[in-house]
Design a protein around this nucleic acid. Structure first.
Length: 487
RNA sequence: GGCUCGUUGGUGAAAUGGUUAACACAUCGCCCUCUCAAGGCGACAUUCACGGGUUCAAAUCCCGUACGAGUCACCA
């Protein structure tokens, strides 16, 4: 049995969309499911007008950040190169195959003007008729064709389709798809600029590169029969088809880069981890057979099964990604977490505090790296805050209680020589016990005094430990002044 | 408009003719707790777009309707 070969074939026209990335992921998983399988990257740059500078680099970068390592591609080489279609085109490869089809009577040369066809189409649509272009150039004599080409007239090569009969194929996801040939239009294979269309290059390259499993979006479902007709004309083996449902932005719209919809790069910039993103999008349109959702890439390879790909579109839910990102963050080992989180801590903490302690209180709380700077914005400088923050029903605190608790805390802090978390912990809890008040009645006011915020990562003990004796006392003093003013 | 595909809770989804229709996110409530989180527990679809049919039995099979998407480019 031959090894599985799949390809990811993006066109370098901008950023990497989440939907694209998911297709790449599925193609990778299908290939890697086979120990000898190969995942190939091919750049489809046949639309010279839409090329965007740097887009290919984004593709390389994204794949590598995600760990979707390709076995063959423009940057890593391989035995089936070149892997960029414009380079293949320069070898005359597409034209050669297109001409073969012309010789076989499966394609023809067409001189029709784009505008003329467009006009005919509009007329048909105005009448409410469906429009299938019947190309008059099919009837041109050999002599006429030759003389017009010689005269320098522009032409394209167009597929010939026998309108009789049906064409059908079995999609691994959608099952049997079958269409009447008369509804198939005769698509352009080679453009007048000499470049192949996607429709053609795709078939030629997939065959030449030995692709066994074509993984792509379901927007190609309805043109697949036309591709198969080309395979049949050449007598080539057809690949297995794995069409994937779309990733949606909402009920009726696919995810798109316009409107600032999430691209992979955007999400990473917002503080989502590539592993979490990949894990999340794997679940958009596919579900594992076991009751589990957290999978590393290698685990996905094991668990993935084409048969469990869904047929209907899935809406991208940032909420769930957010949760999943938090899971990845919490499960990360401390050393790795610290290195990851350090630059974000440094965005708001510039003074000389123990960053590891800060990372520690963050770990259970931050779902998103970008949330971190704001969570720590009280550490360097205490900001102005409202004295009412000390009043908390659940903690059973009032301004009076806060004041007396802080006075006690002040005394305790002043007399504490052993400023470390364990001693602070024991000391403060004992203090509350001695005073006959609830822990919260003592600790809540301290926490507010130290941070000036209603919510903070960490509590009174952790914050006083991090801020140190002098700074803690200073902040308590400020709080007491506030409370005196309020009284 | 023609053709193709789709439709289970707010979201991702399981189920492959017989279950109280899993599970996860979100939401809400309770517990834990020095705040917020995290964690624990619980609530949340009498119903699977709708209407028929087949069957002892249908979310699952068949037909129709509605709605949605894709495609019909010298874009991929």
């Amino acid at each position: 049995m031959t090894s599985i070969r799949t390809r990811f074939a993006p066109s370098p026209t901008g950023y990497m969309h989440i939907g694209n990335l998911r297709t790449a992921l599925y193609a990778y998983l299908v290939a890697k499911k086979d120990p000898n399988g190969a995942f190939i990257l091919r750049i489809e740059d046949t639309d010279q007008g839409r090329l965007i500078e740097g887009a290919t680099d984004i593709i390389y970068k994204t794949l590598s950040e995600c760990g979707l390592k390709h076995d063959e591609g423009p940057d890593v080489g391989g035995n089936y190169g070149p892997y960029i279609q414009s380079e293949r085109m320069k070898m005359g490869l597409y034209k050669e195959y297109a001409m073969k089809l012309v010789e076989m009577g499966k394609a023809h040369i067409c001189f029709c003007k784009e505008e003329d066809i467009e006009a005919q189409k509009e007329i048909a649509e105005a009448k409410g008729e469906s429009f299938i272009y019947r190309d008059p150039c099919k009837k041109l004599s050999q002599e006429e064709i030759e003389s017009r080409i010689k005269a320098g007239e522009k032409y394209v090569i167009r597929q010939n389709i026998d309108p009789n009969g049906k064409t059908s194929f079995d999609d691994e996801v959608y099952g049997t798809i079958s269409v009447d040939n008369e509804t198939l239009d005769e698509m352009i294979l080679l453009k007048s600029d000499g470049y192949p269309t996607y429709n053609f290059a795709n078939v030629i390259d997939d065959h030449l590169m030995g692709i066994t499993d074509v993984v792509r979006g379901n927007e190609y479902l309805s043109s697949t029969p036309k591709y198969n007709l080309i395979y049949e004309a050449f007598g080539w083996d057809k690949p297995r088809y794995i069409h994937c449902p779309p990733v949606m932005k909402d009920e009726t719209h696919k995810l798109s880069k316009r409107n600032g919809d999430a691209s992979f790069g955007d999400l990473v910039e917002k503080g989502y981890l590539p592993e979490a993103i990949l894990n999340y999008i794997a679940l958009l349109g596919w579900s594992p057979s076991e009751e589990r959702e957290i999978y590393s890439l290698d685990e996905l390879v094991q668990a993935f099964d084409v048969k469990r790909i869904n047929t209907s579109g899935a809406i991208f839910d940032i909420n769930k990604l957010h949760w999943m990102n938090g899971v990845y963050l919490r499960e990360m080992d401390d050393a790795k977490y610290f290195e990851l989180v350090k630059p974000y801590i440094l965005k708001s903490v510039h003074k000389d505090y123990d960053l590891k302690k800060i990372a520690h209180i963050l770990k259970e709380r931050a779902n998103l790296l970008n949330e971190i700077p704001e969570m720590l914005d009280f550490i360097d400088e205490l900001r102005e805050y409202d004295v009412d923050l000390f009043i908390n029903k659940k903690m059973k605190t009032s301004l009076e209680i806060a004041k007396s608790s802080l006075l006690e805390a002040q005394k305790f802090f002043e007399n504490t020589s052993d400023w470390q978390s364990e001693a602070l912990h024991d000391g403060l809890l004992n203090l509350a016990k001695d005073l006959g008040i609830k822990n919260g009645q003592l600790l809540f006011p301290i926490r507010v005094a130290l941070s000036g915020k209603a919510f903070t990562p960490g509590g009174a003990i952790e914050l006083s430990d991090i801020l140190g004796k002098d700074e803690s006392l200073k902040r308590i003093k400020i709080a007491l002044e506030k409370l005196n003013e309020a009284a």
